[in-house]
Amino acid sequence: MNPTNPAGRPSPGLVPFLAISFVGAWVTMIPLWLDGLRRTSAEQEATPLAALCMILMMLVPALTAFGLTARRRGPREAVRILGLTRATPWRHEARSVAVALLIPLGLTACGLALATLAGWYTPGRLPGPATITPLVLSALVSVPLYFGEELGWQGYLLPRLLRHGRIRGLLISGAVWGAWHVPMTALGGSYPGHPVLLGIPVAVVTAMLLGTVISAVRLSTGSVWAAVAAHLSLNEFALPLTSDVSADLVDPLLAGPLSVSTWPAGALAVLVVRLGHRRVHSRGRRETGESWDGAAGGQAAGSASGWVKRTGLSRDRA
């Protein structure tokens, strides 16, 4: 445990990061609230104003994280600490990115199978080049926006939450991610046509599950690149493909990557992460003969601990 950060005291820089990120999210959505915009149907496309506000909102976490870190450590060191530089050999990094792109698609496919059995989704056709090509082009253009979020969540927030235990830190990170989306969710962004009091808790649970998987990808590489790939795949491929291959209008609450039908697959993925974590620590204990305490407030062990140390977080007081 870091002696400069006693149990019960927030990790250095955590409170200002959360405060600025959440306030910034609400501020960027003010024009939409003043405009009276509310998404009431899945057929309703985003207006230019809504697109601009969402772009600004996505950039808030990264700008906050970079500003707080650079203030204490300098811009060049901030790039390394936040995980923007490649942390593993490029071949491993490329494989990690490729796997990260497939994970949201796999979880979505499992969810759509369940939604189809429940009568919530009607598969139509397989996507062809005419469908995939525009999505790929959109994804390439949108890459900086996903760095805008993940530099904040995975580069800055996650290592501070890992001090509360790895699995707990991952789940808290996902919950924070979901709560941060409330200004957009309340406008019907994710679940158009549904009450806010239903959409917000569904969004938070979904974010806890998907966010845990994305964060686990981040921990496996020590770089935010794979986490960005997973987030990009979720928004730029899994979401639109759900509608593109459907024969009917899709209710995002019931079918798709953000729906309740993906919860079983997401929960199973979290369980796999948990079991993998326990296996790593069990092996480590046998090899070193040391005990490991995974209680809240303990320092994350194994690869997570090594990554937190490599970021220089113990010296970062931003």
Rank of each mutant, 00 (worst) to 15 (best):
G152L: 00
A301F: 10
L49H: 13
H277R: 10
L114Y: 06
V15S: 00
T28H: 07
A139V: 08
L271S: 08
M184F: 15
G294V: 05
V224N: 03
N5M: 07
V141L: 14
L232T: 08
A304D: 10
S41W: 05
A300F: 02
G188N: 09
P129T: 15
R91G: 07
H181R: 03
G294C: 03
L117C: 06
L34P: 11
R163A: 10
V273T: 10
E149Y: 03
R317F: 15
F147S: 05
S305W: 15
L151C: 13
M208H: 06
S190A: 13
S215N: 11
G188R: 09
G165Y: 03
T116Q: 14
L170I: 04
L249P: 03
P159W: 09
Q299G: 15
A42D: 11
V250W: 07
P195I: 02
T40R: 14
V272W: 00
M1C: 11
P16H: 08
L158K: 10
S173M: 11
P16G: 04
L112F: 06
P89G: 07
W26V: 12
S138R: 15
P144Y: 06
M29R: 10
D244Q: 15
R9P: 04
L137G: 09
I103A: 09
P31L: 01
P183G: 01
H281E: 15
E290H: 14
P6W: 09
M57N: 12
E150L: 07
